[in-house]
Design a protein around this nucleic acid. Sequence first.
DNA 1: CACATAACGTCAACCCTGTTGGCATAAGCT
DNA 2: AGCTTATGCCAACAGGGTTGACGTTATGTG
Lengths: 243, 243
Amino acid sequence: MAKKVVQEGERRRRRRTKQGLVLSHDLIIETALRLLREHGAQGLTARRLGLALGADPSTVYRYFDGMDDLILALADELMGRAVSGWSTTGDWRRDLRELGLRIHATYLAHPQAAVLTAARVSGRSQEIAADEAILGLLRGAGFPDPSAVRIYHAFIDQALAFAALDAATLTLPEPALRADRTIWRATYARLPERTHPNITAVADLLAGQMNSSAFPVALDLLLASAAADLASAAPGGRAGGGG
Amino acid sequence: MAKKVVQEGERRRRRRTKQGLVLSHDLIIETALRLLREHGAQGLTARRLGLALGADPSTVYRYFDGMDDLILALADELMGRAVSGWSTTGDWRRDLRELGLRIHATYLAHPQAAVLTAARVSGRSQEIAADEAILGLLRGAGFPDPSAVRIYHAFIDQALAFAALDAATLTLPEPALRADRTIWRATYARLPERTHPNITAVADLLAGQMNSSAFPVALDLLLASAAADLASAAPGGRAGGGG
DNA sequence: CACATAACGTCAACCCTGTTGGCATAAGCT
DNA sequence: AGCTTATGCCAACAGGGTTGACGTTATGTG
């Protein structure tokens, strides 16, 4: 029902003089992003958004078809920011690593959007632009199309999956239940060595590592594997980019 | 507040004759798993759980400290099922692949638990048992401890992250917004070739692949990378398992 | 200018969620 | 018996998303 609003209401600048503020898609998106940034994943609710806008919560529904539609629009805005200012260095592996870290970091700050972005086809411009860039890097590096698509799929979903997971970890309400170094040590160092020889042997390494995200490690492993594939397929070096 | 219940109430078998049914931790867990299995991620709520138990929703709070505590117990039960009946074949890479697929599939059927499992340290037995098994495989294969921990971390979090992501994809309410092959074709095949040359070039491959989970691909890439690391560190073959 | 119409904002309500405190009863212990 | 603990239910609270009715404002048209 808000679709006509999207098409025609965009260029008209109306002024609410007595009833309240002037709302717009951009203002709502901006405010929603601010809420996510300042209060985390749980900070964005219909009611809080209305409050932050100085408007009634239901007003948002004049501009978006429910919260899912808003979050989808949010996701596209985020993807645009994740890849904005990006340019290739000529090294596909380095570029992909940078791109992956950017996407992960961006969606980490705004978690709910990651799931929706990976789960749905929004058909929005920024997401498609990112897809095009990633595929271009892989195909330009010389990957044959099936491999490029395969790696692209794993790459983008891995970035989004870890972003969603890491965000969920960070936004847990009770820090007592969160995995911090102390708890890890207390839990794993006390295991009997006979029943858990491997854990006790590496308990210190575990304690030092399990708090940080595993995403960079997984990303590097993925890229290393891809590079090995490429090297074995075309040992001479990089093949010329197609069409 | 329910902790004493956990300790002492376990062995006593009481019978509620007039007020209602006999509840127990096991019965609640079983019912919760059934709800997740039958109605998906959104099927498990405090109120639905009470309804399925034939009891008041608040009764559950006599046995668990809130829904988070219940889900944590659920996660441990799931991890136990994921690795139950598993035994090594002597091939660490094959074993890890099997284990990863099992964990992913199990948590895929019961999604919320994946996030909590990865995010928190429950210190529960089944999770620790799985950790011990994975670390044992890696260290037994000859990985030095830092590498073993690094790969273990990426391995387990990747399985859980993809499970959470894939589950979120599957449980989306509106199929119209879900990514099925038709929508992918319609969205990506119509892009202008000039602005999106790479996407249009591989549109068919994309359409055939983006519906399935990227987890098996990502898992294989991770394992291949680990195997390459191991081979380059100890070229002669497998090193003997450390103490 | 006046009028009709669409856009926009608010209010109150509905149904869902997790959670808590008070109260009643059954079970176990002394 | 009595006393304590363990349950279970009921009603309520705070907070989610969403909707429909209603009034006001802005725009388009004569």
